[in-house]
Design a protein around this nucleic acid. Structure first.
Lengths: 201, 201
DNA sequence: ACTTTTGTCAACCAAACGGTTAAACAAAAC
DNA sequence: GTTTTGTTTAACCGTTTGGTTGACAAAAGT
């Protein structure tokens, strides 16, 4: 196996372990076992547990952040934006279902890591979206709403059902298959729900 | 200090440490230091780290679960239910802001602990709420919606802004005071947003 | 009064942990 | 074909971890 393969192999194993157990719960030996290599190799390619963790965390952010930027930046009618976001984001998370909980936990454990891991100027593009929404409000095309709340609403309804899956499964008494169907329905349901709330009619 | 005081003192210290660092990140020595007692005392009152953790976790669930039952069980017009829930739940979480992230993380780490920690028959009362919603739909009082999605929407919009606070603070570029104001606004905003979406008008 | 139980502590322990070392091995480079 | 460079391993190391022990004192029970 080439060195690059090994490096990727380690990163894959580390991703699986870190994302399911968190930084504190993960063991270097377990990652090594999963990657089927010697524990010393982890330190040969990534100097420390912290460095290996950071590589995993940055990858996770780089998977999730772009689509969030998309909803904010893309020049497109607001309702289209919302439909594209809920559909795209829920599909994306379905492929990486451990990431949201992972990011949320590690970020609350240590909020500083966000500063180091870019996400810097969301602000500029967020201003553009504010303008778009406020214009629609002024023209009487949608109900009055603060852009901050609208973003929170859309993102919350898209992501939280993944983060709180064990709770919702228990409360709503669904098995895995049924819950997955619910998640799929949400790709369109959330957009419909939001747009119905915004429409004046 | 009496034995009961000591026991509560330990539980308070353990709650603070466990909820901010998680089971894996918490250290028994740190909990002992916070409670200003000897580490052996932790094992005298709670036999193991696991047992101490379970006491903290059960307390956390018992703080959060009743209000969730409330929205489902209480005999009350649907819109009133929703307003009471968002206002009450967001206020509650504000007093225990670490709990949602704590529960979410520990539940994903080990989904089995829910079985042990009651939340058994949510199902019966959930059926009643289904009937209530479906009746309103049939009478043409609200737009058609699956009860499961409605619950998810309300709960997600109420809780997720606490869980994802570091992300939203960064993306929306708010300081702590500004973000707290947003959270307060949501006590009424979320209910308005949901009700607007349900209304047919 | 004295015996037993309960609460508290410093010191200790074995296991597990992240990380290191030195040597073996393999692949290029000369 | 020898040297050099990069890769892999088993064994090891110091520290930290959850948990235990035994001594001891303050209550509680008799």
């Amino acid at each position: 196996m080439s060195n690059q393969d090994t490096e990727q192999n380690i990163l894959n194993a580390a991703t699986a372990i870190f994302q399911s157990k968190g930084m504190d719960g993960a063991r270097m030996q377990e990652i090594a076992d999963k990657a089927k290599i010697n524990k010393a190799m982890l330190h040969y390619y990534y100097r420390s547990k912290q460095k290996l963790f950071e590589a995993v965390f940055k990858t996770a952010i780089s998977i999730m952040a772009p689509k969030l930027r998309e909803i904010i930046e893309k020049e497109e009618p607001l309702f289209d934006k919302i439909r594209h976001f809920t559909n795209g984001y829920i599909s994306l998370i379905n492929k990486h279902s451990y990431i949201p909980t992972f990011i949320v936990h590690e970020l609350n454990r240590n909020p500083h890591i966000l500063q180091d891991v870019f996400i810097k100027q969301f602000g500029d593009s967020f201003d553009k979206m504010k303008v778009q929404i406020n214009e629609m409000v002024e023209k009487g095309q949608i109900r009055s709403i603060e852009p901050e709340h609208l973003i929170m609403n859309v993102v919350a309804m898209s992501i939280f059902p993944f983060v709180a899956k064990p709770i919702f499964k228990s409360v709503l008494q669904k098995d895995d298959k049924e819950y997955q169907e619910l998640l799929d329905e949400r790709k369109t349901h959330v957009a419909d729900f939001v747009i119905n709330s915004l429409k004046i009619k």
